[in-house]
Design a protein around this nucleic acid. Structure first.
Lengths: 348, 348
DNA sequence: TTGAAAGCGATACCAG
DNA sequence: CTGGTATCGCTTTCAA
């Protein structure tokens, strides 16, 4: 039925071994012979059987990318960057590697499930993105799983995510704490004093770090603990909308709000708009990711620019195993980018 | 080294065949026996070898999703929807299927490359998204490839994309023509007469259909051919920005602009803003996809709501082969959704 | 430089 | 309901 390597060998009058060598190009083959083989491949329209190849070679051309949500451009940008690296050559037979994108919805147990699935596929590498849980149990299970993956030859890279203890994985963490600190410090320097905060989901490392940075900046100005003006919310616009309403009810006179990411910031903007409050005239809103969509649509948004593309590309290269040592930690720093008319606090 | 099915069999004191049956659950096995096997699996921390399994069974648990750009929420939303369907059960061994997301950048030749790669993986199905080329040659090559994929047992689904001639693939095309017609008709009903158009890339089916709809609406009002006020642009904000500048130079008095998608619309908004023109006060801008991001950020945007999630979910289900006949064409209609303050044309 | 042949690990048919 | 085993298609020593 389907053409196999043996068919190609027969047609080219060579042994299967030779065909394999030509296809993988990792072994010397005489010019004329290779020509003959390639012609046979073309004639028969032969396509390698990936699973068979992976079985024999004990490794595949698949690279897993774990994200919370593919529809979220934050992860989309990272995934695209990773793929741009793994796609360009390097795979077995000079072919390209394929990206297996897995949406975990941020659930730790689904993270483990997908890692098992990728282990089953004998994936060449796995890139874990997004914030990790603070949950001890899950962190432990995750570390164990990662260790097993590495043992079975799958490289693991943590992109925009803190390092995992006692693990040979390579980490590329964002400096969320410093970013948040600078963001709030910026608002303070503009004269804002009543700064509300829409933090991310609880028990996430990212949430904690950004919140800590926020606190540090306030503390540096001898301002009270921000807890009363802090609301936790999931990373969705709708949550940002409701969080903003809640914050307005707590303090109608707030002059600025720092949101844990751009989606929340946009939701906050919508809530303010619907409450008849102008942005940034009355209230300054800040995001954290600086996604093209949000910053282009809302030019008055002040954001910490997280270098998602750079981090993703780097993660892709590390996944290929062409650079980086096991257990290495390479911090990726965000950059505060002020744009538009986010101005000083309003009088009154 | 790594634990194999044989190891499990040995530990459970059964034959490999039995272990396989327990794992795949598609064959009767006595209660106590299955218990013993499952315990052995757990004890040994056994993980199936995907490639070996795929080789023997002649099919894999992979589903390919071809998109132009993962970072674009338009495709992200579709990919997420597809994955939500293929992820929930149904795979071999009750496991889940994995989504292999391939970014083609809209290049037809990369589309072919990825299809070959997926064929090599013996993917269970492939979902093609985005607009197709108008190029005869590529369309032919693509159809041939799709035919070969179907022959080798890979189901092919076209999501938001016109049917491929002489192909057993199932198509879920968007009714771009009708959507565009309604959009322009809507602007006309508001009194707009100088309507500019930022069309998508040339030689794309989507571009042609949307442009045709635009023309039809204008023709129904005896308005002149829109060509002089039409600019082609790639689907990126930057292109929309420049296109808008170009259009303004052609007609400073235009009162509305229909953009081929939301990214272009946002770019157009930015250009208008920078030119000191208020949106929608002076000029109405319309998009086409109604992505959450853009509509939330720019509430005055009038858009045709394309049911991306619904189409993606449907595509996912069709990919699983649980419904749909080969060659079936299921049109997906967009819905005009007017929001915000897009109002009548300004006086003067 | 090329060929022969022994696996890789799971599946599924055929017996029992 | 369970076991034995040929087979899937390719890779990779080992020889020649």
């Amino acid at each position: 039925m389907t053409v196999t390597l043996a068919d190609v060998a027969a047609r080219a009058q060579v042994s299967p071994a030779t065909v394999s060598r030509v296809l993988n190009g990792n072994y010397p083959v005489a010019g004329p012979t290779r020509e003959r083989v390639l012609r046979a491949v073309a004639d028969l329209d032969y396509v390698v059987n990936g699973p068979a190849s992976a079985l024999a070679a004990a490794t595949s051309d698949l690279v897993g990318i774990l994200v919370a949500d593919i529809a979220d451009p934050f992860f989309g940008i990272i995934a695209a960057a990773v793929q741009s690296q793994i796609g360009s050559g390097g795979g077995r037979g000079g072919g390209e590697r394929l990206a297996v994108v897995c949406a975990t919805g941020g659930a730790p147990e689904r993270e483990l499930t997908y890692l098992t699935l990728l282990q089953r596929q004998r994936a060449a590498a796995v890139v874990l993105t997004g914030s990790g849980t603070e949950d001890r149990e899950h962190t432990g299970a995750l570390a164990a799983k990662v260790r097993r993956l590495e043992e079975s030859g799958t490289r693991v890279v943590l992109c925009g995510r803190p390092p995992l203890k006692d693990t040979p994985s390579i980490a590329l963490p964002f400096d969320n704490r410093a970013g948040a600190r600078e963001l709030t410090a910026h608002l303070l320097s503009l004269g804002h004093r009543r700064i509300a905060c829409i933090a991310g989901p609880e028990d996430r490392t990212t949430t904690r770090h950004r919140l800590e940075g926020h606190r540090e900046a306030l503390a540096a100005h001898q301002l009270p603990d921000p807890a009363p003006l802090t609301v936790h919310a999931s990373y969705e616009r709708g949550s940002g909308y409701h969080a903003m309403q809640e914050l307005l009810s707590r303090d109608p006179d707030l002059t600025a709000v720092v949101a844990a990411n751009d989606s929340l910031a946009l939701g906050a903007c919508a809530a303010l708009r619907d409450a008849g409050i102008s942005v940034p005239g009355d209230v300054s809103v800040t995001g954290f990711d600086d996604l093209p969509f949000s910053s282009d649509a809302v030019p008055s948004l002040t954001t910490v620019h997280l270098p998602l593309t750079e981090a993703g590309q780097r993660a892709g290269r590390l996944a290929l195993g062409q650079e980086g040592r096991a257990g290495e930690v390479i911090p990726v720093t965000g950059e505060l980018r002020v744009r538009g008319s986010t101005g000083p606090v309003r009088a009154g």
